[in-house]
Simulated scan of single mutants.
Amino acid sequence: MIDAIIFDFGDVFINIDKEHCHNQLKKLGLKEWNSELDILNHNYEIGKIDEIQFMGGLQKHIPNASVLEIRDAWNTVLKDFPENRLEFIQMLAPKYKMYLLSNTDRTHIEKFEHKFGLSFARDFYSCFEKVYFSFEFGFRKPDEKAFQFILNNHHLIPKKTLFVDDNADNIASAKNLGLKTWHLNPKTEDVVQLLDYMKNLND
């Protein structure tokens, strides 16, 4: 019997488009997304560097664009947040212990809160026992430490905990720790179908 659920954020609740974001950066002059930028992004998402350092690192690859232009392009990854998903999670909140676990950075979260409004963001956050953003607590999926931190911190039993994510590597890590999982396909599935999915879970 599931009594706790850990949710991803991007493409589970808020729709995202990484390809569109990269195209916007290319329009500003980025030739290609490379391993150096992967490391830069990783360090920003685990809070090792701040926004100024991150944007400065991006600007080295896009020298003719301003930091503001780069920041705006970076935030185009964030798309819509269907209201029925908020209504669904609000309905679910009294029934389960729920947690949000997202690989994200301060820039994107500030944009989310500005784009949809603080009231909307607070209504969403309040559905969870705790919100874990990678840039705040220093761990990033698929690192098993990210899951272990939440399991230990909240005394969760893995086999009674469901993890919902659209990323196969993150799902694999959760499975390694004994969690139940739903590898959600954002093109064909929606988080509001969660209760139907859970009916088919093996105890």
Results as ranks from 00 to 15, higher is better:
K26A: 10
Q90M: 05
M55R: 07
A121Y: 03
N153C: 06
S134K: 06
K180I: 10
D169R: 15
N64L: 06
N170I: 00
F137Y: 12
L201M: 08
N41A: 11
C127S: 08
C127Y: 00
F116W: 09
D143R: 05
F163I: 10
D196S: 14
F7E: 00
G178S: 04
T161P: 04
Y197H: 15
A121M: 02
E113A: 11
G47S: 02
F135H: 05
E136Y: 09
E45T: 01
S102R: 12
K27Q: 14
N152K: 05
D38V: 06
R140C: 09
G117T: 02
N15K: 14
P94Y: 01
F137R: 05
A65E: 06
C21A: 15
S173H: 01
E129L: 01
L40Y: 07
N43M: 13
G117R: 00
K187E: 13
M55V: 14
H20N: 15
L184Q: 08
V77I: 13
M198C: 08
L179G: 03
Y44R: 01
D72C: 12
D72P: 09
L151R: 02
D190F: 08
W33P: 14
H183P: 02
E110D: 14
I14D: 02
Y132F: 13
D8G: 09
F9K: 10
